[in-house]
């Protein structure tokens, strides 16, 4: 399934997410189950399937990381369910340090500082990813996607810490 095609976009990492939302709403209306209430079972099923594709496609294209994964998948680089291991000692050492830093966070200010740091690192990696995808350096791009997954995991952890801090205040 090519989600770019589904939303009538060119296959590109650059995507106007405002326009994506607009097309998403239009497609949703077009295939809304209510419109097929009096149709045959087959049409109903088709519409339902289409709606589910539209939802999956929207979720996938909305976020740059999943969009990149989908795009690389279309180019034959399957990342979604891979179980391979990343062996980049320098990057992983940095991940360990960031995880250790996360453990010491006890104030909302520290959460903010860490958030700024993580956002900056994510931005840097996103820029690298953009360049690699544009230059068709698919293998390097795949590694950058893997690194970004670690960064997102850190951000999720940070959110969890933030929530628990809020609770205890």
């Amino acid at each position: 399934m090519n989600y770019f095609e589904l939303f009538d976009f060119p296959v590109s990492f650059d995507l106007d997410t405002g326009e994506l939302s607009r097309r998403y709403r239009l497609l949703q209306q077009q295939f809304h189950p209510d419109r097929f209430a009096s149709s045959g079972e087959r049409d109903k099923l088709n519409a339902l399937q289409k709606t589910s594709q539209i939802n999956d496609g929207f979720q996938t294209l909305k976020m740059p990381l999943s969009r990149a994964e989908h795009l690389l998948g279309l180019r034959g680089v399957e990342l979604a369910h891979e179980q391979r291991t990343l062996r980049d000692p320098e990057f992983l050492m940095k991940q360990m340090e960031l995880r250790e830093a996360l453990e010491t966070i006890e104030t909302p200010e520290a959460v903010l500082d860490m958030d700024v740091q993580l956002q900056a690192e994510i931005k840097t990696l996103m820029d690298v990813l953009h360049r690699e995808i544009t230059a068709n350096e698919d293998e390097s791009a795949a590694d950058t996607v893997r690194k970004l997954k670690f960064m997102h995991k850190l951000r999720d952890e940070l959110e969890r810490i933030e929530d628990s801090l809020m609770d205890s205040w």
Partner: peptide, 15 residues
């Protein structure tokens, strides 16, 4: 000897 590995799927890091 030090081995550093990570699993991108879940973000786990192991030393």
């Amino acid at each position: 000897a030090t081995g550093m590995v990570g699993a991108p799927a879940c973000g786990d890091v192991m030393k």
